[in-house]
Structures are given as structure tokens and as C-alpha cells.
Amino acid sequence: MEFLLASAVGVMTAAGVYLLLRARTFTVVLGLTLLSYATNVFLFAMGRLAIDRPPVIAADASAYSDPLPQALVLTAIVISFGMTAVAVVMALRSFLESGDDLGAMTPSSGTPAQMVAEVGESSR
């Protein structure tokens, strides 16, 4: 089980980081999602891997697993879900306003003069 979990975290992190480094915001959002999955699984494993141990008090339990990482994972899932939604909305808005989903700051078809004009415009 340890190997499965560790390799899952590793593969998801690697894929997430690879996707994050892409130029288009869609793949970047996918990368963020994978990275947050990896983080959640990792956090979960921080309470040690154990089978048949309840996290809350039960009459017939001989041992307990640590409930805190599970609570942390729950919080982390909620937050990363909300954050991904924000990132998607912002990426969509950026796509609608500029016509492409490249994440780079340089306009795709702009001359340097236009870029300077845009910089001046945006600080207005």
C-alpha cells in the first residue's frame, strides 16, 4: 500500500508540475488540480497508513488512527476546490478579454509600441 500511495503522489505531482509549466491556462488549471490531488493524498498519508482503525471513539476499537490529517484534508479539499474555481473563472475572463488563453504577458500579435501603450493603459 505504501508503494502504491507514494507512487501515486509522485506521478500526480510530476504530471501536475509538467502541466503547470505549459503556456496555456487550460493545461495550467489541470496541472493545479493534479497538484492539489497529490497534496491531499500526501496530507492524508501524514497520519500514517493504517487499516481498520476508526478515527473517532468506538466501543470495540483496539487502536485509533489519527483524525487530524483527515480533518486537514477535508479543509484542504474545500479550499483547493474553491481556488480552482476562481482560477478557472479568471482564466475564462482572460480568454474572453484578450482572445487567447496564453498565459504570457506579451500580447500575441502586438508590436513593442502597442505593448507599451497597453502597459500605460492598464495602469490607468
Binding site: M90, S98, G103
Partner: peptide, 16 residues
């Protein structure tokens, strides 16, 4: 503004 939103996307990604 297009440029501001684009910078905003980068800011969000870095912080995530």
C-alpha cells in the same frame, strides 16, 4: 482590462 486580468491569472497560479 485584458492585461490586468492576465496578470491576475499568473498571480492566482503562483499563489495556488
Amino acid at each position: 482590462g485584458a492585461l490586468r486580468v492576465r496578470a491576475g491569472v499568473q498571480y492566482v497560479v503562483v499563489n495556488l
